[in-house]
Write a protein that binds this DNA or RNA. Structure first.
Lengths: 220, 220
DNA sequence: GAATAGCTACACTGATCGGTGTACCCTGGG
DNA sequence: CCCAGGGTACACCGATCAGTGTAGCTATTC
């Protein structure tokens, strides 16, 4: 236990970014084990931090969990926002761009495996969560992704590439036909789908979406 | 089964359908508390049964859980099969019938609250489940609902009310646009949606489905 | 009326875990 | 040089829980 502060390399007691280490570890352990199974001792070990330190930063196991859940949702929302901006700001080929966007969006889920494992835990614990916390989480996470997609679609429709009257509904449809379908089959990536299957679902999903929203003929 | 030939109220040690009582109680407690939180003592109490009896019927907490999960999936699949048969055998008005079907299908979820609470637990524990058990559960439950819907749609298409080339894909689309949407927003009914909102989602979902699959003009 | 099968009550073990208290240690600042 | 703040190691408490063992009860069957 003392072997770390010996010579050097192990940047241990150096940073007050203990907090960040705790958050990362908690995300991993909560995701891996679920809320009840996850022991604070295990989180402390994974964070290379003493259990006492955790309780100096957080009053509760529950508060730690909620804090981590909210932070993760914000991270993911931000990442997805960037993906939207990257693919949907300028449309070249509507089908290609929507497919590329959706593939990246799906890939984002697999880029945050710990967080989405934790999402499954949240959904399981949903009845035991403080209602205001649940609301806050929904808004920081899943809801915000929806709401932020709509304006992009609206703008694309204004340029004439799509025919949309209810942009939020359209956003919902695109999400259901791609991300939700993949998530449901892969349990948010916990039981991963082969990439080719993901490609197929997303491609077909976007094409189906376009059957709903593509202008009838040659409006450019 | 045997509880009737006794006069008195407390139908306690009368029946060997202890098993049924245990299953019901386990479903409720597992659903309410999640796998880890649920204590075998609590299940025994809820089943009005001694803990020892549970361990005489099931080797394990885990085996009990899996057994209950499989049985519940079968129950729900059967119920949904009946709903399909009731609404989709004979089509009168395709829109009305699909809406009525989907509303009943959504209602079925709220008719088995314990089971779907347990579904959320399964999804959370998915990485800790024996893979063959997960496969068996998927096939007894969610997958089978999909697969059994497709033939109905195919038959409807043969009669000319819909234009479908891939019936399984169409079934998937109908499910995504109605049941999945509702489930996702309500966490499988754990945080219930107001009925009017359910009606709206389902109605719009079916109409969107019909935009995809309704024959172009007057093919009767 | 005896045996059998299923159930119950109850006590117990071993382990885990949330949370706390405490004495000590390291570091940087004045 | 000393002090304060944050970290650590460690021991501890009380509670919960899976699972077992056992002795005794009840009803049915032969």
């Amino acid at each position: 236990m003392e072997n770390k502060h010996q010579k050097a390399q192990v940047t241990h007691y150096v940073m007050p970014d203990k907090r960040a280490a705790i958050v990362r570890a908690a995300r991993a352990v909560f995701g891996r084990e679920g809320y009840t199974r996850a022991s604070v001792d295990a989180i402390a070990a994974e964070a290379r931090v003493s259990k006492r330190t955790i309780y100096n930063h957080y009053t509760d196991k529950e508060q730690l969990f909620l804090s981590v859940a909210l932070a993760g949702a914000a991270d993911v929302t931000k990442a997805i926002g960037e993906i939207m901006e990257r693919h949907l700001r300028k449309i070249v080929d509507i089908e290609e761009d929507l497919i590329a966007f959706s593939l990246d969006r799906v890939a984002a889920i697999r880029a945050f495996p710990d967080h989405f494992a934790l999402v499954r835990t949240i959904e399981a614990e949903v009845t035991r969560l403080p209602p205001d916390m649940l609301e806050a989480w929904k808004e920081a996470g899943p809801l915000s992704a929806h709401i932020r997609l709509a304006p992009y679609l609206r703008k694309i429709a204004e340029r004439g590439s799509l025919v949309i009257d209810d942009a939020e509904e359209a956003a919902n449809h695109l999400t259901l036909l791609t991300v939700t379908d993949v998530n449901q089959r892969s349990f948010y990536g916990a039981i991963p789908l082969p990439q080719e299957q993901v490609d197929e679902i997303v491609t077909k999903g976007v094409r189906t979406f376009l059957r709903l929203y593509l202008p009838p003929s040659g409006t450019r």
